[in-house]
Amino acid sequence: MSGSPKGDRAEEPPTLTIPRGTLLRSRVVSDVGTTLSRALDRELTGYATLVPQETLLLSGEARGVITFDDGVPVLAYNTVTDSGGPDALAELAVPGPYRVELYAVDASGLAAAHEERALRVAPDAAATELADDPDLAERTRESAPEERLRDADDEDDAVAAFLADEERIDAIREQARSEARDRAAEWGIDDALDGPDEFE
C-alpha cells in the first residue's frame, strides 16, 4: 500500500508503504473511537483504514491509514492527498460514519514504515482528534512506551518555543513581506501592496 505521487516537487513527501495484513474486522462505524479502543485492547500491531462515508458520496479527499504498535497509534497517512502525521489526522477529522477495516501485520512488516518520522503522530492524537475521547486518550498514553511519550513532549516543547520566539517570527514575516514585494514588482502589481500590510 502506498500513496500516489503528485507532480514535480523539489522534495517529495514520504509515502506510507506497508504490507497487506490479515483482515480482522470490516464494518461501518459511527465513532472511530470504537476501532481505536479495540486496537488498544487487543494490543494490535497492524493498521486500520478509515474512509469517511461523506467522502464516498462527495468524492472527498480523506482516505486514511493509521498504524498501530501493540495497540498504540504510530503513523497517520491520507492516501488521497499524501499528507502524513497531524495533517492527515486533521483531514480525517470529519463527521462519521466511517468505513473501517482493521488488519493485523507482523511487526517486522511495519518496521520500515515506522521509521518515517514525518508521518508520526502522538500516541493519544487519534483518540483526541478523531474520537474526541479524553478517557481513551489517557488509556492510550498509559500504554505507550516512554520513548514515544518523550518524543511527543519534545515536539510540543519545540512548537511552544518557536511560538515564543517573537524575533524569529518577526524575521519570517519580514521575509514574507520582502518576497511578496519582489513578486509584485516582477508581475507589475506593486500598487497592490500599497495598502495595509497583509502579513500582520
Results as ranks from 00 to 15, higher is better:
P123H: 06
T22R: 15
L75A: 03
P52G: 06
D153Q: 12
E174D: 08
L193Y: 01
V51W: 03
A104S: 10
D194W: 00
D153E: 08
F162G: 04
L119N: 01
S2L: 12
R120P: 00
A62S: 15
P86F: 00
E61K: 10
E179M: 09
T45G: 04
N78F: 03
A10Y: 13
A88Q: 11
D151V: 12
L57N: 11
L56G: 12
P196D: 14
A184E: 06
G71Q: 05
Q53D: 10
L57Q: 15
A48I: 12
A160G: 02
L57V: 14
A62R: 07
A62E: 05
P134M: 14
G96L: 08
A144I: 14
V74I: 09
A184L: 13
E142Q: 15
G60R: 09
A185M: 08
S26K: 14
E43C: 08
E186R: 09
A107L: 10
R148G: 06
T35W: 07
T67C: 01
S83R: 08
A158K: 02
L58I: 12
S83W: 07
R148F: 05
T35L: 14
P14A: 07
G21R: 05
I169E: 01
D182E: 15
V51F: 02
R63D: 09
A10S: 15
R173F: 04
E61W: 08
T67S: 07
Y77D: 05
S108C: 07
S83K: 12
K6V: 08
D190V: 00
F68D: 07
I189S: 11
Y98F: 13
R173G: 08
V32I: 10
E138P: 01
V65K: 00
I169A: 00
A161M: 01
L92G: 05
G64H: 00
L163W: 07
A184Y: 10
A10G: 14
I18N: 10
L130S: 11
A185K: 13
D151W: 02
G96E: 04
A93T: 11
L75V: 01
L44F: 13
P19S: 13
S178H: 03
D41L: 07
T55C: 13
A144W: 00
E43Q: 15
R20L: 14
I66C: 09
R177P: 00
P145L: 04
A10M: 12
D106E: 08
L36F: 13
G188R: 04
T35V: 10
L119S: 03
H114R: 14
D156F: 03
T140I: 04
R177I: 00
D135A: 15
D31A: 06
S59I: 06
L136W: 04
R139K: 10
T35D: 15
A76L: 02
G21Q: 03
R183K: 11
L56N: 04
D82M: 06
L136R: 03
R38L: 14
R177G: 04
E146S: 09
A176L: 07
R139S: 02
P196L: 05
D132I: 05
G7P: 08
G71D: 08
G85E: 02
D153T: 02
L75Q: 06
D154A: 06
V159R: 12
Q175P: 00
